[in-house]
Simulated assay, not measured.
Amino acid sequence: MALREHDGPRLRREQALTACCLAVSAEANSALTPADQSAVLMDCLGVLRACHPADRAARLGMREFRRGLRGPLDRLLPPGEVEDGFGELRLLDGDGLARDALEDLCREHLVPQAALERHWSWPRIRAEHEERRLFEVMRRLEPQEYRQARALLAEHPAGPLRTLRRTWDRLWMRFDFFEPVSDWPWCQLEGWWYPCPKCRWPMRVARTGQDVEVRCEAHRPRGVHYRLSCEAGRHGMAPLLVGTGKASPSVTGLPASADHLALSRPVWRYGALPTLLELELRDRLQGRAHVEVEMWPGELRPDEYDLRITVTAPGRPARMWWVDAKDWASAEGLAQALLEREPKRRTVYIVVPDHQAHEVHYLKQKLAERRIKVLTLTRIVDQVKRAAGGRGE
């Protein structure tokens, strides 16, 4: 994900520092092949150039980059708003080995150790960083603010700046996870973008020859996809779309201008989508006799669980489910992320969308040694309803 002109000096400096850390981890790793090392360094150099003004970026070549990694970083980092001491850092010692400060810096800047050891690509680093930064922001909120923020992530992930500011209200200045839709050519159709009817995030525009498909990356398996209508729209209005899926109601295009914003992709993927799944689970159980659903309990740590479902049916023992909803594109990636967590104090139910039912067996096998159970949304709804004395769906 490229940096943008409106990213602040502090953020650009932190991104540049992260790129330097990743480059040093590759430069100091003698086990890497020259080709793999070069690929990592080129990736990091591209990020570093994006952090500098165009004239400076044009003069920043690979030779200067590698030389700069061996000295104080002030020759590589863009200027910051305040003195932070980063410019004086040396990440390689005289023998070309990484200093201890490298690991500390990455931990402090929310970059996992695995990123250094496995030489992750920059897009993956950026996604991981955004997710962890969101977690750090959320954990500092008061319980009421936390619940409000979770709901807003799902219900207002994109739209006109004025509307978002009004809706997010006092939380707006604490959430700098929005980006201009005008920077995202992949979701634009003749200068317009279309929010998904389920998650309200911009849908992707895919062209194959003369055919144009507009689809939600997350909800296409559930029938959210459209094609460009043959009927011409009115002058000055968004092109017309025709629904081609079972969950494709009429949608209206919005201007892909700088004052229309959307959550960054990692925050949408790992923040908004799971919250939508949690809200759907709540709605399918709400009003059910003997069933209580508590969203984002106030005493929890934000990484513990997100719903607590309690069933107290007469004549039956009380049952409780601690639920953490997940909506990942990769079952393997989800399993690895869950294995990297600290073991939980209690059995947690991981709930995934129904269209990923075929991946549940794989997840169960990978997580067999943990106190984790994996169910689809419909399966856990059935379990709760049967425990409450009713029939499943």
Score class of each variant (00 low, 15 high):
Arg139Val: 05
Glu217Cys: 10
Gln210Asp: 14
Arg170Gln: 10
Cys199Pro: 03
Pro274Gln: 06
Pro266Ile: 09
Gly243Pro: 00
Leu240Cys: 05
Ser250Glu: 15
Leu276Tyr: 04
Glu217Leu: 15
Ala272Glu: 00
Val181Cys: 06
Ala247Gln: 14
Pro202His: 01
Leu277Val: 02
Ser264His: 09
Glu145Lys: 06
Glu142Leu: 13
Arg215Ile: 09
Trp172Thr: 07
Leu263Met: 11
Glu217Lys: 09
Glu217Asn: 09
Trp184Arg: 14
Ala256Gln: 02
Pro143Arg: 00
Asp183Lys: 01
Arg234Tyr: 11
Val251Arg: 06
Arg222Met: 12
Ala232Cys: 05
Ala206Asn: 10
Trp201Ile: 05
Ala238Gly: 11
Pro195Lys: 08
Val205Ile: 13
Arg140Ile: 00
Val267Lys: 03
Gly243Ser: 13
Gln144Asp: 15
Ala272Gly: 02
Ala256Lys: 05
Asp183Thr: 13
Ala154Met: 01
Ala256Glu: 01
Val212Pro: 07
Phe175Met: 13
Ala258Cys: 07
Leu152Gln: 04
Glu190Ser: 14
Gln144Met: 04
His225Ser: 15
Arg166Met: 07
Asp259Thr: 10
Leu189Trp: 02
Cys216Gln: 03
Leu171His: 04
Pro180Asn: 13
Val181His: 01
Arg204Leu: 15
Pro185His: 08
Pro221Asp: 01
Tyr270Asp: 11
Arg147Tyr: 00
Leu189Val: 02
His235Arg: 13
Pro157Ser: 07
Leu161Phe: 08
Glu217Ala: 12
Arg215Met: 12
Arg227Glu: 12
His260Leu: 13
Ala206His: 12
His235Thr: 12
His156Arg: 15
Thr252Val: 15
Leu164Gln: 12
Leu161Glu: 15
Arg147Val: 09
Pro274Leu: 10
Arg227His: 06
Tyr146Thr: 05
Ala149Leu: 10
Arg165Gly: 12
Arg165Pro: 02
Asp169Phe: 08
Leu254Gln: 14
Ala232Ile: 06
Trp186Pro: 05
Val242Cys: 08
Leu189Pro: 01
Val205Ala: 02
Val224Met: 07
Leu164Ser: 14
Thr244Met: 15
Ala151Cys: 03
Leu263His: 04
Asp176Met: 06
Glu213Lys: 11
Leu279Pro: 04
Leu141Lys: 00
Gln188Cys: 11
Trp184Gly: 04
Trp168Thr: 06
Gly243Lys: 06
Leu171Ala: 13
Arg162Tyr: 10
Pro197Gly: 05
His225Met: 10
Leu277Pro: 03
Pro185Tyr: 00
Leu228Val: 11
Leu228Arg: 12
Lys198Arg: 14
Ala247Met: 08
Ala238Trp: 10
Trp192Ile: 08
Gly191Asn: 04
Glu280Tyr: 07
Arg150Lys: 15
Trp184Asp: 13
Cys216Asp: 02
Arg166Ile: 04
His225Thr: 07
Asp259Tyr: 05
Leu228Gln: 00
Arg282Asn: 12
Ser229Asn: 01
His219Gln: 02
Ala238Asn: 07
Glu213Tyr: 09
Arg220Pro: 06
Phe175Asn: 13
Pro195Ile: 10
Pro180Ile: 08
Trp172Tyr: 15
Pro255Gln: 02
Gly236Asp: 05
Arg282Val: 12
Trp186Ser: 13
Met203Tyr: 05
Glu155Gly: 06
Tyr194Pro: 05
Pro249Arg: 07
Pro180Leu: 12
Thr244Glu: 15
Asp259Ile: 04
Leu277Asp: 03
Arg269Glu: 15
Ala256His: 07
